[in-house]
Amino acid sequence: MAVQAIPKSWYLPSKPHKFCPGCGHGIVLKALGEVIDELEIQDQVIFGCDIGCSLLSWNFFACDSTQTHHGRTTPVMVGIKRSRPELVCVGYMGDGGGYSIGSQHLLNSAVRNEKVTLILVNNTNYGMTGGQMAPTTLPGQKTETSPYGRDPELTGYPTMGPEFIAQLTPDSAYVARATVSKYKQLKKYIKSALRNQMEGNGFSFVEVLSTCPTNWRTNAQQTWNFLEDEMEKYFPVGELKTPFGKGDK
């Protein structure tokens, strides 16, 4: 069977995309595009993107889409979903937008079990603004605002997003952590997160571990090593909560 290289739901005039070479966003957005195609929901999807690198996806899909503000994608998606429940709302954000400036929205929409799907890309730093420390920066990791390495005594430990969201949500929520190094699993989790919304179950959240060679200042091998050896060790990949049966943690 011929595999289609480019998802049908991608918006071709905006390609090639504007992410840096080696960035993981393209992989996440490819998985999302394929899932939108497979679920045949291109015409129902509302794609909302945060400010930060995720903004570069604002016209990535041939789906109705909206830019929002830094951290505010979650409430915009909630407002749309509450107003038009038939739409499939997908919020796309980074770790800064989701876990720092927009954390109150993430937390409370999880508690309310809002019927939206949020995909949060974790690359352990603020990429768009030039590589500052993020809530997800690993202990000892050097960034522009932790030039001697993140010291947990001063700035705490990395935010464990899916773990805290799993604690806040009822059983009908879907919560998982994926990684761009395991594409099939990533796609499966995104598909589950969309299905969970479409079936009206509840809040659906996927954190995706991703790469940022530009700000990590790493070559291809070092980039992949940091993702697989450092990040995936600290942030366990798997399903934390699934209404579709036992998770594959």
Partner: peptide
């Protein structure tokens, strides 16, 4: 419809979303 949001930022942005959806 009605939703009591977590703060005024959220109230304002959910209104923006509601209006965008028509």
């Amino acid at each position: 419809g009605f939703l009591q949001t977590e703060d005024e930022l959220s109230a304002g942005f959910t209104v923006c979303g509601g209006v965008q959806s028509g």
